[in-house]
Computed example of a mutant assay.
Amino acid sequence: MTDQTKLALITGASRGLGAALAEALAPTHHIVAVARTTGALEELDDRIRAKGGSATLAPMDITEPAAMATLCRGVHDRWGKLDLWLHTAIHTAPLTPAPSVDPKDWTKSVAVNATATSMLIPYVAPLLGVEGQAVFFDDPKAGEKFYGAYGASKAAQMALARSWAAETVRTGPRVTIVEPAPMPTALRARFHPGEDRAVLTAPADEAARIVAVL
């Protein structure tokens, strides 16, 4: 990474939209890729390097405050700032009626989708400064039948993001919320196992669209 290269932090970068965004941004950004799955991050790194890009792999759990504090301190000490943060990490609890939501699924959904976001924003905000940009990805399922744990925790995440966006209109960083097109990801397959995946938008195509409008 040269001094002129921009820096993009992607939380949830190992697969799906996060991985596609990492590859789409790699020609112009050094990628700091965060996910729990080391093998998937290494495969992502291979694809990025094959295209002439570079990445720093961070196999970490975003629900661990100490790990995220170490990550952000490391970014500060090495580069001093971030240009872009894309938060794609998500937990998809199984579809189930509200009275049947498993307590473990509820706890994990809130931890990953809501609590981790509330922890990451104050860690990452100083790195973004005035000119950086944070991007969140909406999936409005709150109130839909069988989406109780996922819909509620995702809505909490979006509420935090929208509040931050409103608070920083004049001061920065810029906070952007994007609603991606349906894609044939593992997340969607868990919710819609029988649908025709051929009619869905490829993650690489959707990543290219999102990067073009950032």
Rank of each mutant, 00 (worst) to 15 (best):
T56S: 15
A22N: 00
V211Q: 10
A161H: 02
T185M: 01
P99K: 15
P140W: 07
A55L: 12
D83Q: 08
A149W: 01
E206H: 04
L95W: 07
R47L: 06
L41S: 07
L84S: 00
A26R: 01
L86K: 02
A198V: 05
A149K: 04
P184D: 06
S163A: 08
I121T: 04
S153F: 05
G151H: 06
R190Y: 06
L187V: 10
T5F: 04
I10A: 02
M119N: 07
L82P: 02
S100C: 12
A161F: 03
D196R: 03
D105K: 10
F146A: 12
A166Y: 00
R209K: 14
F136T: 02
M68H: 05
A24D: 10
A89C: 07
A66Q: 14
P140T: 09
S54R: 04
I90K: 01
T115R: 09
M68T: 07
L84I: 03
T28R: 06
E64R: 12
Q157N: 12
L57V: 08
Y150K: 00
Q157E: 14
A66H: 11
I62L: 15
V169C: 02
P122I: 08
L44H: 09
E64N: 12
K108M: 13
A19P: 03
W85N: 03
R49A: 15
A50Q: 13
H29M: 11
Y150N: 04
A208C: 02
V213Y: 13
G52M: 07
A69Q: 14
E179S: 13
M1I: 09
D77V: 01
L86Q: 03
D139L: 14
A134M: 11
E42N: 11
S118K: 09
I31D: 00
D3L: 13
R162F: 09
R36E: 07
V34R: 03
D45K: 11
K81H: 14
A114H: 01
E42V: 12
T70W: 03
A98L: 15
K104I: 07
A165E: 09
V110K: 00
E206Q: 08
L57C: 11
M1W: 06
I48N: 04
Q133T: 15
L71A: 12
W106N: 05
D196F: 09
I121E: 02
K141V: 10
G53W: 00
K141A: 15
R49G: 10
A20K: 03
M1C: 12
A93E: 05
G18M: 10
R36K: 11
Y123F: 15
K6Q: 13
A89V: 08
G172Y: 12
P184Y: 00
G172L: 06
A13R: 03
T28N: 14
T168G: 05
M183F: 05
Y123T: 03
P27W: 05
K6G: 00
S109M: 09
T107F: 09
W79C: 06
R197I: 05
E195S: 13
T176N: 13
L71G: 12
E195C: 13
P126S: 15
A207G: 08
S163N: 11
A207K: 03
A58M: 10
K145F: 11
L86R: 04
V124A: 10
V112I: 15
I210D: 03
K6F: 00
